[in-house]
Design a binder for these strands. Sequence first.
DNA 1: ACAGCACTTGACAGCGCTGTCGGAGCCGAT
DNA 2: ATCGGCTCCGACAGCGCTGTCAAGTGCTGT
Lengths: 329, 329
Amino acid sequence: MTKPTMEDVARAAGLSRALVSLVMRGSDKVSDTSRERVLTAAAELGYRPNLAARHLASKRSLTIGLVLNDLHNPFFPEVADGVHAAATEAGYRVLINSGYLRGALEREAVESFIDLGVDGVLLAGARIGASDLEQLAARVPVTVIGRHLRSTSVDTVNNDDLAGGRLATEHLIELGHQRIVHIDGGQGAGSSQRRSGYSAAMRDHGLEPEVISAQFTEEAGLRAGRRLAGRPKPPEAIFVANDLAAVGVLGALADHGLRVPDDLSVVGYDNTSLAGIHHISLTSIDQDRQNMGRLAVEVLLERIGGGRRGAVHHVIAPSLVRRATSAAR
Amino acid sequence: MTKPTMEDVARAAGLSRALVSLVMRGSDKVSDTSRERVLTAAAELGYRPNLAARHLASKRSLTIGLVLNDLHNPFFPEVADGVHAAATEAGYRVLINSGYLRGALEREAVESFIDLGVDGVLLAGARIGASDLEQLAARVPVTVIGRHLRSTSVDTVNNDDLAGGRLATEHLIELGHQRIVHIDGGQGAGSSQRRSGYSAAMRDHGLEPEVISAQFTEEAGLRAGRRLAGRPKPPEAIFVANDLAAVGVLGALADHGLRVPDDLSVVGYDNTSLAGIHHISLTSIDQDRQNMGRLAVEVLLERIGGGRRGAVHHVIAPSLVRRATSAAR
DNA sequence: ACAGCACTTGACAGCGCTGTCGGAGCCGAT
DNA sequence: ATCGGCTCCGACAGCGCTGTCAAGTGCTGT
């Protein structure tokens, strides 16, 4: 029992293959009765067009590839929801791949999509370097989510990480904290901007910034948190570069008997589902991930459509969500 | 700047296209010098074989499709890690799709993979009905993870949910609890077995089982938790069908001022990263997800290879991980 | 009865690759 | 000199579909 082809459908419907092709492509120059016959014949046979063949012949696949930096970070699935919704509406199918937090695998994932012939690639939280991205964009339409790029060929969709970093820091300053430490996200997307926002806000208020280098993972947060908690005089507040790391920090603090927010406040970033969990209740900076996903698809499809040459850089405003981990001193 | 084809590589290398094809397919009847020349020419041109064309011609794609039921549940990314590792080792590429918790979308995801021409499909936490799965398996090799099926055409990889349900329940009984309620996972994969394990264990100890119907989501757990917490006499312990829902339950209990584990104990299932978070520290039943992912790939590749006709059903033993949400009364 | 229109056909070239063959060229071994 | 054994070539027939075109077909209206 091999898969039916167009030929089979045409025979079953008693019509020509050309007509079946037209119906499958949704042409309007087919009579309703013929369309009906083709469609029922196709349904009876369980016919589905072979995408590989279709793509080979038509140079388009109606498919976009979504590369997520890390499936374990709830941030990404939430972006994926938005992407899926928008893409589906536009008649595109979405294929997902994970970079498994490794630059090399991320690259592989993208190459794989290109080999497959997707019409465009969406990178969420890309680790790939800016110049590599530029090269990539010469081969296929690319939109990057959550990474700031001054590119003319790569579109981007971001939240304003600089403002977000500021927002978090100023929130802590307003609460009366002074010795505020930032645990950053290393090479992670948006990390440097958040760090800059933090530093700027600190200096604006005559405070000395201190940054501890880490990563966008729970594990890294845990380690950084331990270092801080182990100090003779721990900071009054910590702004952690993302929620996942913040959860690690919270764990480390608890291990050391430090109470949050009584002994010190903690603010995260992303406002992922983790932050909202009752037992965590992390004050965090929200970026509308679902919307970012949708926006990214729109931008990508514009470029695929070919209507645009220059790059578009969307920046959405982040907002503070107060929860139980931050309080006045 | 269009993509280079084999023809281009052949010309650049000064060799025939047939030879280039042989090199790309890793044939051993090519001299080392020729192979070298082809490879460097390919590298210089940035040539990569077109997968659509390759697949069309060869009837195989060296690609497997992985459909995850819900990206938001940390259980699935952890399975994905195992799948990716094993598949990569075997020279297969993995494409991911999410069912977004909806049966219809899950179906769509699978169809999409088939249209693309993947060599096999892996379903993690499938919602699709057993008979549909059977039909599916007639079209493409299928392995299901986390769902028990008495099928001769679909392979499965599971943990022993019945034993797991028992394990969780007996743990609570050993702690001296009697009024133990189970919040189940509705139609979710493995849910009915966990429920059975719970009921059997209760009856074995002369206790009356009570099941509250829910889902494998935090939201559903929250609602179910509220119902229980609102009772004049809440239960002494709750066994929740998965960690995600358990987190919801914990939130509901806390909202009602019930202390865990002082007032009542809670046990989850899956031992996901959520359970390990310090502030949650949920006692849970572990299933070795990474390993399940690997196993699923092996089984799938066996079937793809065609060496097997009958179905294989792997069942791995779950284990109890004690944490802070369960204690003696 | 005939033009005009809407639909349908069949044919063909082509997408980039696989897979298979007969045969050519070259080498060392006999 | 001869015979295999290697490599390599060129050609061909697909894979299932798209896209285009000239050439119908049947039906409508006048």
